[in-house]
């Protein structure tokens, strides 16, 4: 009895986070179409459904999948491709643990498991007409890339568009060619900074929040989206508020330990929220009371 579609829970086939064909605890087989290194410790895999290469993945910018390496385990990974692109899916992954190390060793044609998509998405629809300020740090650019694609594709529907990106060193900058092409092709203010560099780098040096000093957007009409290490997001949110952006207009994407991604296993609890199903994208006003609590 192989991979039985769960017969008792047809109501799960349509849920808020998209289409889930079978039991959400059982991974589906997906095939590695391409895998390549972005930086020394960050790689991207492109996936297609195994045997159904034409089948589309449905997801919203900001959602994540649980990727399963056979026999090793699962890891929650944000989707980093264009949500309108049919037939394949990109995940940009920081090699940090057992599962991500195993995933980094995959070759074209290998099969892995996938459950998802899960979680909330970036608020792009009701941001129309507003200035957009995206602040990302490190691997945090990856979960926002689908949102960036969306904004660029519908560029006229938004006001000023600013992308502030902080990386550790110039060598750690993700998608450098693509970033450069966005700058050339679109109406976007893109500022990149690194935490440290040698003398060969001509760009900004300093923490990503300092870049806000160079941004010219209307704080009364700005939607901000922030993703990166939580401590970085804390400083970014503080700076945004200092610059006059309203708490309710600031969105953050949080990370917690996740085992099931369905709200059952309890690990990802953050105060009253389950990051897996209530997040990962939260309005800052939803978490403002608990954001400063230590070890929550």
């Amino acid at each position: 009895m192989f991979l039985n579609v769960c017969k008792h829970f047809t109501k799960m086939t349509e849920n808020k986070s998209g289409l889930i064909k079978s039991d959400p605890m059982i991974p589906e087989s997906v095939k590695v179409k391409k895998i390549f290194w972005e930086t020394e410790d960050v790689f991207t895999i492109e996936l297609v459904y195994d045997g159904e290469e034409k089948r589309n993945f449905n997801f919203k910018p900001g959602q994540f999948n649980m990727l399963y390496a056979f026999g090793v385990g699962e890891s929650a990974i944000s989707i980093s491709s264009d949500s309108t692109k049919k037939g394949s899916l990109l995940h940009t992954i920081h090699k940090v643990g057992y599962v991500t190390s195993e995933l980094s060793k995959l070759k074209k044609g290998d099969i892995i498991g996938l459950r998802g998509p899960f979680g909330s998405s970036w608020p792009l629809e009701d941001a129309k007409g507003k200035d957009i300020c995206i602040i990302v740090g490190g691997i945090g650019l990856a979960p926002l890339r689908p949102a960036i694609y969306h904004i660029l594709k519908h560029r006229k529907q938004y006001g000023k568009f600013t992308l502030l990106y902080g990386a550790r060193t110039p060598r750690d900058i993700l998608y450098p060619v693509e970033l450069e092409s966005w700058k050339k092709k679109y109406d976007i203010q893109l500022e990149i900074t690194v935490d440290r560099s040698d003398s060969t780098w001509r760009g900004h040096v300093g923490v990503v929040t300092t870049l806000l000093n160079y941004v010219d957007c209307n704080p009364d009409n700005t939607r901000a989206m922030v993703c990166g290490p939580e401590i970085m997001m804390k400083y970014a949110v503080d700076e945004l508020i200092k610059h006059g952006v309203a708490e309710k207009e600031i969105y953050v994407s949080l990370e917690r330990n996740m085992k099931c991604a369905l709200g059952f296993c309890g690990h990802c609890q953050y105060g009253p929220s389950f990051v897996c199903k209530d997040g990962p994208v939260f309005s800052f006003s939803k978490v403002t009371d608990i954001f400063e609590i230590k070890e929550l």
Partner: peptide, 18 residues
């Protein structure tokens, strides 16, 4: 929850939820 057997470059999952 389930068990799986490696098959070629992939695997087959058997649901243990019977």
């Amino acid at each position: 929850l389930w068990q799986a057997v490696r098959e070629g470059r992939g695997f087959n999952i058997e649901n243990s939820n019977s």
